[in-house]
Design a protein around this nucleic acid. Structure first.
Lengths: 229, 229
DNA sequence: ACCACTGTATGGTCTGACCATACCGAACGA
DNA sequence: TCGTTCGGTATGGTCAGACCATACAGTGGT
């Protein structure tokens, strides 16, 4: 006699996850149709739909209507969009403070910059973003390229998890970043910081890159200056 | 004429999020009942349910059946369970490699230990976990207290976002941690490492704490030794 | 004052139906 | 033979209604 404690959709979720692992499904593979899954598992279609919705929320699959090879539930991998939603909501609930997010970002960025410098990573994306920033006409546009710049550093670190976290942090704090840029007014200090970071990475000096990043963040958010280790 | 491109549940999601922000809802507050929400928003109950499922997946609310003040959809804040699911699934899809997760964990832990040392944080939870580890009879039990130890370090850092990420990383790698402990056989080296970390934190020496954490990780996962900056 | 019973609001689930979409394929025409 | 058109169909998206299990809120009796 098994006690009924898990909801049906959780059961469906577990079975789908098991199928992913056992069958070695990977990005691009298709799941059976909703009605088919429901019949196979002996549950209603609504339970299947709720399970699929969860997977979609976690950035693991995406649903397409219509017919053909591209239709249906396809396994994907978008950890950053899922992380962005998660952070945004928890920031909205005031269970996380901006301080914590920025501290985390500083930690990620110090690590990424040092790693990028140590591995002599490709810096062309950084150069592009820098040019975009210098040509930006508004704070919003500036922040857009600024985000690209900092995400490019994370990408250059070669760690996709850290890059995904960085991207989510930036997305969920976009509003505050725009405020910070507007508060500063003159972006020349930020430009100098960015160049400093770029040259440190290109010259392969991890310690200098770390220092440059820390300086930059303390300029952008002076209220949260450097008692970080 | 607005084009119908967003699905109904996404619309519901946006309205609920808006309500959270506008009404200043916070943890512990209740959302209207599913049927009420459906009627208020002019949509079907299934769409409301899918939206609530998404919020539940993101760790923002929890649903209770029955009646009374504790029943219904209650706002919560469980970023770590959501993050755990996310990481576990993406690890299963092989879009993230174990190396990336462990690198991230090392980064988090170096930072947390240094911060805990610098702020002279309370270390009683660390002591408890240490005792549990030394009394552990099996690898599983050992890992359980080991997880508690490392999460306590993250908690002691005073940054809840970093603590949540740490907890999720540990949970999603539990299987590999057990393997690592079994591979080592003799846990005395790990015990020494843990004591080293604890003393460094208690003596308020951030650099020593950082070093101790890095040493520990390189012992536990020798295959991924220290080319980390 | 206590206890047992009933009412009811809640989420959980299933069924069946209908819609919009987009591919598939047969029928048709050049 | 080739291209086009048009209906068929599988897909997800949505809704309505029904029923169940749960757990509290009264209500009534003792």
């Amino acid at each position: 006699m098994t006690v009924k404690k898990t909801r049906t959709f959780e059961d469906v979720l577990a079975q789908i996850e098991r199928r992913i692992i056992d069958d070695g499904l990977t990005v691009g593979d298709r799941l059976p149709a909703e009605r088919q899954l429901a019949e196979q598992l002996g549950v209603g279609r609504s339970s299947v739909r709720e399970a699929l919705r969860v997977l979609e929320t976690l950035g693991v699959l995406s649903s397409q209507v219509g017919r053909g090879p591209d239709a249906g539930a396809i396994l994907t991998s978008r950890p950053d969009t899922a992380l962005t939603d998660l952070l945004r909501l928890h920031l909205g609930l005031a269970t996380l403070e901006l301080r914590e997010v920025i501290e985390t970002r500083l930690m990620l960025e110090r690590w990424s910059a040092a790693r990028a410098a140590a591995t002599r990573a490709d810096t062309s994306a950084l150069v592009d973003a820098l040019a975009g920033m210098e040509a930006a006409a508004s704070a919003e546009e500036f922040v857009e390229h600024d985000t690209a710049f900092h995400c490019a550093i994370a990408d250059a670190s070669g760690n996709r998890l850290i890059a995904a976290i960085m991207r989510s942090l930036r997305d969920s704090m976009r509003r505050y970043a725009v405020e910070a840029v507007e508060r500063l007014g003159d972006p020349s200090l930020l430009h100098a910081d960015h160049h400093h970071i770029l040259t440190a990475i290109r010259s392969g000096d991890p310690d200098e890159a770390t220092r440059a990043v820390a300086d930059h963040l303390s300029h952008a958010y002076p209220a949260l200056f450097g008692d970080t280790p």
